[in-house]
Amino acid sequence: MSSPTIVSNGSISSKAWTVTRLSLSNLALAWAVLLACFALVTIPSVIQVVQAGPDEYFDNSYLLSSGNAFYVLIFIAPAVVALSHLMKVMYLNAAKETFLAGAVLLYALLAAAVSAANHAFHYTLDQSWEQTFQVVNLAAIFGWTDHGVLVGFLQQFAFMFLVAIAVHTLASLQRSWVGWLVDLMLIGLFSASLVTEPLVSVRSWLSEVLVSHSSAPVQIGSCLVAAALLYGIALKVLRRKEL
């Protein structure tokens, strides 16, 4: 018989990369939703811009930047991976840890791609449309574009990465009552944080630290630390999960 413990020559990182590539090439649903959102955001904007005259400016009319449509990928892809890809990776007899490492690598790639795409729109199409309308780009609203292209890209990347891991962790809980309990608790806490002190202050502090802190390194570091904590939770959930 083969040795009792199967010794693998492949490194964990190369196996994780295999999982990343498998997931990346099986995200048809996420790409379809992204395409639909992009069309829903962009087509009305194009119609408005075409209808407006060349020398007109509408200071009370707002367009949502097409770049923001890419954010949808950060919500859909982790849900698809956590809910649909886990068993498929397990049926290839991969370790649970390899699956999660591959998923996190995928989220890092998607966060980088989304951040780059939104920045590209902010510095090109948004600038052009701002000649006619007010253009709303969340990256600008959160202040990520105030620190230059590279730092802004990193700030947006860190936040998107955190969101992706949070969605993955929540999605992986959904097939048990614990998931529903966590959902209810989060909804309850968020609702309470709108009206009840000290939760209002905690929510404001969290949103400042994770989203709009004036210091980019603090915001980036906070997002990465929070992502690491959520990764730890996701790993614990996955290890205990029955398949």
């Binding site: 413990t5 199967i6 498929k88 290839l92 390899t98």
Partner: peptide
């Protein structure tokens, strides 16, 4: 890691058999 289990009606990634074998090969050096 010493057990492999093929469940009835196991769902695989929607890829060609050749790609699935390649992925399994990359995940297992044995």
């Amino acid at each position: 890691r010493s057990v492999s289990f093929v469940e009835s009606r196991a769902s695989q990634f929607n890829m060609g058999a050749s790609s699935l074998l390649r992925a399994a090969h990359q995940l297992h050096n044995d």
